[in-house]
Write a protein that binds this DNA or RNA. Structure first.
Lengths: 245, 245
DNA sequence: TTTGACAACTTGTATATACAGGATCTATAC
DNA sequence: GTATAGATCCTGTATATACAAGTTGTCAAA
């Protein structure tokens, strides 16, 4: 990108060089001062770029020494963070198919309304989709999109990426989400779709997603086959800030 | 703390004020310039503090407007990130008990050795612990601590917090971990301990934990009752940096 | 009344500078 | 040889400054 901020394009470049093996695992990156010279920028800007790499688990900074390239870079995949099925599909190579099972008006469930505030209009679009990988049903995704934010969802969009539509076409600024992962028994309709045999247990990932201006707009219930579910996370040790209260 | 860095103590203070309701959800924090004056510091330092709050899901920054206090602050709990059972227990109020089932020498499993590098010494201390909340068995934790980093584990420590021992007594600098969450069938020994009835499925959280100098030192297999497992996460939208490769 | 330009706020990015403090190597003293 | 002190690299923190860019209210012109 030409218009991109300096620190982000530096982060991009460093990330690519690590993933392509130009900086190999276990070795040190050039020092911040050297990187600043290489990219023709200031040390502060390089540091902002390195913060990105640190958060993504690509490097580990050691005070007085330098930035070590981590080998987690190659196989670790940030499923943590908000990333969509289509984006995942593009980055990994899976033979994935999406089938739209339902696309209709349906109000936001009452128990969700309680969580996000009773003042808002529950009118929403309900989208139910089956995700298939290598002819095997893996996930049932159920989305509720608030009409107040996303007035309508064309069928073509449901077939593809909701987020691409919202971000690129509607210019919505998706910012953050709260997620919960639980394991729950499912009803027969779902069991049949996912071919759940032994137990009727499935992994349920619930997300409440918000825009940049903090307005809630999407509730997603993602139902996974337990034997195909895998959540990968890179976590940094955080000494709790808040004491008891 | 007296010796604490300025930006961290500002983050502390703001966090407390939000959690105690001094800054209420939906309202704006004072502007960065005002905060800088309030705390007698520079805007850059205030901004570093606000980054912390943003990462913890306490505020949402809006360009040109300000920092909105989020209501997720109160109930969302960062289980994401590396946090220990004892720390969790201290922050929430649960009637939790830890029982040490095993404390012995046992080498690191071969499949883990493959992941962390065959060159290191597999000699480790194996600790198996049962976590009970309100007289109900919830979790079986199995830790392997490399002897090369943690030579010995006193029984008293196993009863309490491993991390407290490693950080406060051994002065180890725990930095990051890779985690996976899966759902798997368990053998009878585990099923009996957790009173798994319907199916023999349990939630397994595997962690590989590393020190600040990138040396691996701990493998943990955490086995949860599926009906008691809940993973809560706050995630920010991240537009993938790395294209396909 | 409505529109539009502008001023006055806000946060975001970038630079330059300074010093503290950890890591590492070397040269000196013992 | 060993150990200590110092020089010299590194990252971490903090400040001051400048300007870009988004948001909001005001005020004047249509």
């Amino acid at each position: 990108m030409d218009t991109m901020q300096k620190y982000l394009s530096i982060a991009q470049d460093l990330t690519n060089k690590i993933k392509h093996g130009q900086y190999t695992e276990g070795t040190l990156l050039p020092s911040e001062t050297i990187l600043a010279n290489l990219y023709g920028t200031s040390r502060a800007t390089v540091r902002k770029a390195l913060v990105e790499l640190t958060e993504n688990g690509l490097i580990q900074k050691i005070k007085g020494k330098g930035s070590v390239v981590l080998d987690t870079a190659k196989f670790t995949f940030p499923i943590s963070g908000i990333t969509t099925f289509t984006e995942l599909n593009r980055n990994q190579q899976m033979n994935a198919v999406t089938t739209v099972l339902a696309l209709e008006d349906r109000p936001l469930p009452a128990e969700i309304m309680k969580q996000v505030g009773r003042h808002l209009d529950p009118a929403a679009t309900f989208i139910q989709r089956l995700r298939t990988v290598d002819d095997e049903a893996i996930v049932v995704d159920e989305d509720y999109l608030l009409k107040s934010v996303v007035p309508e969802v064309p069928e073509i969009v449901a077939q593809g990426s909701l987020y691409e539509y919202m971000e690129d076409t509607l210019n919505l600024n998706i910012a953050y989400a709260t997620k919960t992962i639980t394991v729950e028994p499912m009803d027969e309709a779902i069991c049949a779709k996912l071919h759940l045999e032994t137990a009727n247990l499935a992994v349920v990932v619930r997300s409440l997603t918000y825009l940049n201006d903090t307005t809630f707009f999407q509730y997603t219930r993602s139902i996974h086959r337990p034997d195909r579910f895998k959540f990968v996370d890179f976590a940094r040790r955080k000494h709790l800030v808040a004491k008891k209260f």
